[in-house]
């Protein structure tokens, strides 16, 4: 190996090792701990029972048996997916006209219009939820599923608007002109040209909204009523109320798997290769 090659190797490791080690220790290791925790027994006062006792590993499938023992927990997963789905859909309905308008406005105005979308989100997340407590209280809508969805949409809307706008802005206007020349009406032009071209933007927006909603606990807690419990609330409850860490870990692990599957799905759906075929 040449001297330069050696030095190049050294540089490469010097640069890549610190962040890699940091993330291996503080991201990957904790995730793996979560996996083992889901097979451990709960500790008497909380936390986990020791992994090794009397020279033997104490692992159990009890928590999984408990989870799959009845439909309650699966039902909460299902419900969370429904709420996430509804939120994503409403975000899309709200975001599309706005993104379209910004993309269609003169170039010099676009940055300002985008900035106006981002600005409200420079305020703290809790303040945005708090605003809805004040707004919905007198209307008698606080503590209802509507309040939860309103809060979810409000908090996640820009994550739909921005990727959508980024996509729409790139569209070639001549395509629409060509369609018009061929006699396509406004609706046909949208449905046959703009919409299919915007699908990658929609898919990335969907991932950016759907996934965080799945893990949300503060919004159902502050705005929701008696039945508004999502996976996030359930996980939080196991760690910070019921002191059942194995169950909390199992729930977290299943949520992680669901999220990874969704992310892979949306990446596949948004990939240019698929769009072409």
């Amino acid at each position: 190996m040449t001297k330069r090659g050696l030095r190049g190797d050294l540089t490469r490791w010097l640069v890549s090792l610190p962040p890699t080690v940091f993330l291996l220790v503080f991201f990957l290791a904790p995730t793996l701990i979560m996996v083992t925790a889901s097979f451990q027994n709960p500790g008497e006062f909380g936390g986990l029972a020791p992994l090794f006792a009397e020279g033997q590993a104490r692992l159990t499938l009890e928590t999984y048996r408990f989870f799959f023992g009845d439909w309650i927990y699966a039902e909460i997963f299902l419900r969370s997916f429904l709420v996430a789905g509804a939120t994503t859909l409403i975000c899309l309905i709200f975001a599309y006209p706005l993104a379209l308008t910004i993309a269609a406005s003169p170039k010099r105005h676009r940055d300002l219009l985008v900035l106006l979308v981002i600005l409200p989100f420079a305020s703290n997340f809790l303040i945005r939820v708090y605003a809805w407590i004040i707004l919905l209280g007198p209307a008698g809508l606080l503590y209802t599923p509507i309040a939860v969805i309103a809060g979810m949409v409000y908090v996640h809307l820009p994550f739909m608007i921005l990727p959508l706008y980024t996509n729409l802005e790139k569209h070639d206007p001549t395509l629409l002109e060509a369609a018009q020349d061929l006699g396509a009406g406004a609706w046909t032009r949208f449905w046959r040209v703009t919409w299919p071209l915007s699908l990658p933007g929609i898919w990335s927006g969907t991932a950016l909204v759907f996934i965080p909603v799945l893990g949300m606990f503060a919004i159902p807690e502050l705005l929701g009523g008696t039945g508004d419990i999502l996976i996030g609330n359930l996980i939080k409850e196991q760690f910070l109320e019921s002191r059942d860490w194995p169950l909390g870990s199992t729930l977290s692990l299943l949520l992680t798997l669901a999220v990874l599957a969704l992310a892979a799905l949306s990446a596949w759906a948004a990939s240019p290769r698929r769009q072409r075929s």
Binding site: P42, G43, E44, F66, I72, Y73, E75, I76, R79, T226, G227, I229, L234, E237, Q238, E241, S242, R243, D244, L247
Partner: peptide, 19 residues
């Protein structure tokens, strides 16, 4: 409560919230 009772109460609680 002991851990086993805690877990069954928590299970019941979840059911109460879901139903």
């Amino acid at each position: 409560l002991d851990p086993a009772t805690r877990r069954s109460l928590s299970r019941m609680w979840t059911e109460i919230k879901v139903r």
